[in-house]
Design a protein around this nucleic acid. Structure first.
Lengths: 337, 337
DNA sequence: CCGCGCCACTAAACCGGTTTAGTAAAAACC
DNA sequence: GGTTTTTACTAAACCGGTTTAGTGGCGCGG
């Protein structure tokens, strides 16, 4: 390439990277030759000489089955890509089955310096990963519902307003026993949703409603629903922490002969693609995972470039009203004896 | 590292790569020092000197929304990872919105030599990509329902037996009008399922049943179902090309007051996580996408290493019997006038 | 007209491995 | 015991960029 343009290798590097010290005429000539030859700088050589991997990593710790059902990651990844592609960076994805493998995965990425930074998702309570990544010196962006006190920037979508809106909607319909089926207790976003639910009930003066910790899976959602409906005083509405559990919970209630929404109102979270095409269509909370991924990638690239990135707060999710919520049946005073 | 062990750089390379020409004692010493120092060879340097990217690529052309709902890719990727991780290779993922971007994406991966090979999924009829990738010289493994005549090896899961099993099951229940809602006509796997459906009907002597091309989406499935139920002689069973359409189709039928399965039997394809937790639980076809990804990765790595890889045929999918299928209602002869 | 500084560029070191060519010492052979 | 072969290792080239130091030519001031 350098020879074809009649200049030195260094000159080519300067010209193509828009650095000063190259005459305009020369720069144009080099550009023209490069275009004509279809010359693309070798990513490998560039990575080695500039000591950058030109890639960022995403490690997902999930069993394949549960990953398949999760609408978040594909959209999130698509958002990441939107930003990365424009900057010539690549996304290196790792799917690992458990937390032990996950740790080794991060250590490996750092040791072999395959990536310049990573995304940290599914933040857990007392998560060891922020510290691990700090000790590994791997720039990190944390994906979470709210900023946390740690060295790394957090790109957050606060899910609380979404849950609050769901609860308020149910309260406005006249519900007084509004249960919650939460995700695993270990996840910060499970906690955040559970707390938002509790807070909204408190504001409405309805603290007595029951909740159960579950696992975001359909079977977990069905089980939790059974449990709630078996209560002496079953709820008239359930706020589920995700759509998958809400859908399975709806089916479980229907299997008992309950009518949704007349006997039981249900809300979900995520707005999965099928949610609007069920019987009844599911009232749920919609998050913009694509924008989330895109913002997270922006932030990570700043970090990688040595800049700082402040915590980012994205717009809160919206409540999507469909037909799985309705006023509760009027209380029949016949059984008050 | 070399100095720490008191040997030359070359010796370290030989020792760590298990190549002959190093005394056992020396090799052990080098290993020990490496372990003690936590030395991991720089992936960047290795990539440059060995002219290999040590990564493979997967380009997915989908809109984020439709990708989110697809249970295939997450599982497929998890399978790929299982194989890659064991061999120190990484997966480079790209999500692009359309086919034009997809083409550029492949060209880019090749030009910047970021990957040693790629997976080719969502094979289309008269797909230009196998030829493109051949001209780019990028080793490729094609993911498809059956071997095709092209230069690249195909790793196939034949979806036909799954569809046949579904049709046979419905026939054995007594159905005679068994419709099909297919995916987009352009995809080879849509065609394959449609043909399997048609063949199975022919075998059963029921060629007259209707079908419509759709798009794998819930709204498409609902629309197609409406269309079929509006027919003068509506089907008593519908074989959908995926679960998403089957679920939405079920809801559409229910919205008309039809009972599933008594008035209309329904089968899906994929066995999505929720499919077993609906009303009614969906009879569907289960594929092992994890094994598919794993096998595809094995094949691609052979190719990358300069070996050849024959076409691989994985075990066909299973029909999972649930409650969305039942015998048709006995024909009421009252309206034969 | 000479000396200084600046511009545009080249030469060469460097990133950190792999790999080939070369060499000294040990082993094998007659 | 001397030659040949083998073994075990080192030195250095190489991958293809980036980056620093260095150099020749030019304009400019005095």
């Amino acid at each position: 390439m350098a020879r074809a343009a009649g200049v030195s290798r260094g000159a080519v590097s300067f010209a193509l990277n828009d650095r000063p010290g190259v005459a305009d005429a020369t720069r144009d000539r080099i550009r023209a030759v490069a275009a004509e030859l279809g010359f693309t700088p070798s990513h490998r050589a560039r990575a080695l000489s500039s000591s950058r991997a030109l890639a960022v990593g995403l490690v997902i710790a999930r069993q394949p089955e549960t990953l398949s059902a999760d609408p978040f990651f594909p959209a999130f990844i698509a958002g990441i890509e939107k930003t990365l592609a424009a900057r010539g960076q690549a996304l290196l994805l790792q799917v690992v089955p458990d937390q032990e493998t996950e740790r080794r995965s991060y250590e490996n990425l750092a040791a072999s310096s395959r990536v310049d930074g990573v995304f940290l998702t599914d933040l857990r309570v007392d998560d060891p990963r922020p510290d691990l990544l700090e000790s590994l010196g791997l720039p990190t962006v944390v994906i979470a519902p709210a900023p946390i006190g740690c060295r790394w920037p957090v790109v957050a979508v606060d899910d609380r307003p979404g849950i609050s809106a769901a609860v308020e909607h149910l309260v406005s319909l006249g519900h007084e026993r509004i249960a919650h089926v939460a995700g695993p207790q270990e996840f910060v976003h499970s906690r955040s949703r559970q707390e938002a639910w509790a807070d909204a009930l408190r504001v409405a003066g309805l603290e007595e409603s029951p909740y159960v910790w579950s696992d975001f899976s359909p079977s977990g959602g069905a089980r939790a629903t059974e449990e709630l409906l078996d209560l002496p005083e079953p709820p008239t509405a359930i706020v589920f922490a995700n759509d998958l559990m809400a859908i399975a919970g709806t089916a479980a209630a229907q299997a008992r002969g309950l009518h949704v929404p007349d006997d039981l109102s249900v809300t979900g979270f995520d707005d999965t693609a099928i949610s609007g095409y069920l019987r009844p269509p599911l009232t749920t909370v919609r998050t913009d995972a694509v924008a989330w991924g895109s913002a997270a990638a922006d932030c990570l690239l700043s970090l990688v470039n040595g800049d700082t990135c402040p915590d980012v707060l994205l717009p809160p999710p919206d409540l999507v009203l469909r037909s799985s919520t309705a006023p509760p049946r009027p209380t029949t005073e016949t059984d008050h004896a």
